[in-house]
Amino acid sequence: MASGAIEVHRHDSALGQWQVALRQPHAALRAHVAQLWHGAGQVSYQRDRILPQARSYLLINLGPPQYMFLPGPPEIRVVFDDIWFSGLYEGPIECAAPQGSVLLGVAFSAGGAASLLPWPQAELANRTGPLQDLLGPRARQLRQRLLETPSVAQRLDLVEDWLLAACISGRNVHPLVHWALARLADSAGRVRAEALARDAGCSRKHLTTLLSRSVGLPPKSLARVLRFQHVLGRLGRQAPDWAQLAADGGYYDQSHLIRDFQQFSGLTPAAFLRSAQPDPGSVVVR
């Protein structure tokens, strides 16, 4: 199998101790899958927030139960102890792993899940839940095989084989979807939906329908997520010139950036800078 080498990152700080193994996917999957990872360890904080990205995820818990919290009132704690799928999101997901974690994940590109998996992405956007609801026994069988496989490299091989053999659906995604996703990514979300539709030679309504069906979110929402991620990538740990950062990121003004920041992280930009980050995609909240 012509998969990439495994890159191992170890973390040991006041936030906890963990190890993450990252690998680029098999060549046949690279147009659809951005990355595979296997993480294990123990954190010292109570909860973190997973920040939205223009990706969907296959998540396989191979360790103690973890928890996802649905906002209330009342707040609802959902147990994650098997295999889940998480669609594209327009807000953060609050999680906890009080007993440690062993997690294997597949990160799909924005249009990757629609190309590989026979599921309606419009129904899965802003949702995270059990994969067995969609795949039945096949999901349980995959997880059981992973539990019986001690090697991280072999676990990643198993998931790749499963994606190649069991999940490639042969579904055709409209070429305009791939084109629009590339334009949005290349511009870091700065291209507007109206300009995108004009350049595509179709109505905004038609383009919105295509992306919503295949990706789960309309172009305007995808652009907002991509702009937010671009700003995150530009942040250090010192307060920047927010007005300049907003202008460079394609926001109308600083207040526009702050509104999006609060929606996507649940924090003001200043509060975000004061918060610890276990990794670039999450922030500690308790």
Rank of each mutant, 00 (worst) to 15 (best):
T208H: 11
L222E: 02
L222F: 01
R234E: 14
S214D: 15
P219C: 02
K205S: 14
H206A: 14
S203Q: 03
V215L: 05
V225D: 01
L207I: 08
H206K: 14
G216I: 07
A200T: 06
H230V: 00
R213A: 15
D199P: 04
V225P: 00
S221L: 09
R198I: 03
L235H: 12
V225T: 08
P218S: 08
L217S: 04
G216C: 13
A223K: 02
V225H: 07
R198W: 11
V215W: 12
D199Y: 06
G236F: 03
L222V: 08
L226G: 00
L222Y: 09
L235V: 09
R204N: 04
P218Q: 08
G233S: 11
T208A: 14
S214H: 15
P218K: 08
K205Y: 10
D199C: 06
S203W: 03
S212K: 13
S221G: 05
Q229A: 08
K220V: 13
K205R: 14
H230W: 15
T209H: 10
V225E: 00
L232I: 05
S221M: 09
C202V: 15
L211Y: 12
C202W: 02
R227M: 05
V231T: 12
L222I: 02
L217I: 09
R224C: 04
L210D: 07
L207V: 07
R234N: 10
R213L: 13
K220C: 02
P218M: 06
F228S: 01
V215Q: 07
R198Q: 14
L226S: 08
R213Q: 14
L235C: 11
V231S: 05
G236V: 07
R234Q: 15
K220W: 09
L226K: 10
G233N: 07
S214T: 04
R224H: 02
D199W: 09
L235R: 05
G201F: 02
L207E: 06
K220H: 13
G216M: 03
V225G: 03
R213E: 15
V225S: 03
C202N: 02
V225C: 08
L210R: 08
V225F: 03
L235N: 08
P218F: 12
L211E: 06
V215K: 02
R213H: 12
K220L: 13
L226N: 01
S214K: 01
L226H: 02
H230C: 06
